[in-house]
Structures are given as C-alpha cells and as structure tokens.
Amino acid sequence: MSTLLARHLMKRFPGVAAVDDVSLEVNAGEVVGLLGPNGAGKTTTLRMLAGILTPDAGGVEVCGIDLQADPLGAKQRLGFLSGDTQLYRRLTPVEVLRYFGQLYGMGGTPLEARIERLVRELEMGAFATRACGTLSSGQKQRANVARAFLHDPELLILDEPTNGLDVISGKFIVEAIRREKAAGRAVLFSTHIMGEAEYLCDRIYLLHQGRIVDSGPLADLLERSGQANLTDAFLHHAGRVSGAA
C-alpha cells in the first residue's frame, strides 16, 4: 500500500485550471520530488494532498485513509511544511511545539520527551525558549521542521522547505529529510533547487501548467529527455510543452 496515493486531482480557480488531472504516489522510505516552474501548480497540488484545499475532482489517500472522507484521520498521519510557513511571534519554539503536539492529541511526558529530542536533534537548544519573532529565518525554519516532524507522521509533504535559506541552513534541512527517509518515512517535496532534487529524490514528477509531463527515477528522466542533468531535462520539458501548446 502506498503511503500517499493521489488520483486524477483537479483544481480550477476562476479562469484557470491550476491542477489538471494529476495522479501520483509516494511509498514508505522514498523521497519523491515534485518539480516545475513557477505557476506550474506545485503548491496547489501539495495543499490538496495535505488537506488544506479541497480538490474539485479526484481523490487522495494517506496510508489508505480517504482524505475527503476522514480528513482528521488522514491529517494525523501527515506532516506539512512550506518555505513560507511562519510561527507565532509571541510564542517560543517549545511553546509552539507543545501547542501543536496537543492539537495532534499528544501530551504529558511523551510529548515533552519528544520535544526535548527534536530540540536536541535539530540543534535548537540556543533559541528554543526565545520568542519566535526574534529568531533568524534559519532558526525559524528549524523550529518549523520540528513542528512538521513532531507527531512522527508517516508522510511528509514539504513545499520548497529550503526557500530563502542560506546554504548552511538549507543543507541542515536537506540532511534532516534524509534522516526521515532512512527512518522509513515517505517524503514528497517540491523545490526550485535542482541540486537538492538530484541529491535527495528517488523519483521525480515534472509538473507543467497543472499537468504531469514526465515522471520516474532521475536516470529515466535524463534518458528520455536526452539531457545530461536535471536542469536541462527540466528546461527541455518546459520548452517542449510550451512549444506544443
């Protein structure tokens, strides 16, 4: 059973089909990339997969749970993080984690132990008890990663998680994703940084104008496009589809 299974997702906004018949799946222990230019529909797709947006048509299953029929059960099993996710300015990272932990039904000693562990693993000790409004972008994003990982979800949906971060902070997040994969979690993430995708992804979906134009392991994508690296393959597809349109 796939950890994430999406079938024929459709989403229209006034005057535009943002997502047009997108189907994809992600399995446990696998990192899958969703790549595409700005406006390709990546964020809309990821939001539908995370249960923040309702698709006009199509369905999503998380660990076999229908997201439409049982949104709370499905959301309980997924962690979501985007590059522009913010934190409550007047709370500290520990308070934010405690808040979300309780919303996910955790509490007491297990929650405190889990928070302590995340603070240690993500090296947040220096700022874990400072108000989030005073933190740097990198520190905030680490706290956000901790929030997304907090309830130990089987599926992680990450929308450009390294967006706006410096090289060191970006690398830190990338390594955290690798550790989650090693722990057997399914990860679906979108990025603009081709190097990250090449380094992390087992499989890749290329999205353009709301449709999936190619998918598969990196090697297959390169072979089909006849290009030497992912950037050229990406440009090749973007150009071909635009040209065809």
């Binding site: 997924l78 996710t85 913010q86 919303l103």
Partner: peptide, 8 residues
C-alpha cells in the same frame, strides 16, 4: 495555513 494542516 499551519493551523489548517493540523487535524482540526
């Protein structure tokens, strides 16, 4: 958006 991701 963060709040909307939570099972609420």
């Amino acid at each position: 958006q963060t709040l909307m991701v939570a099972p609420l």
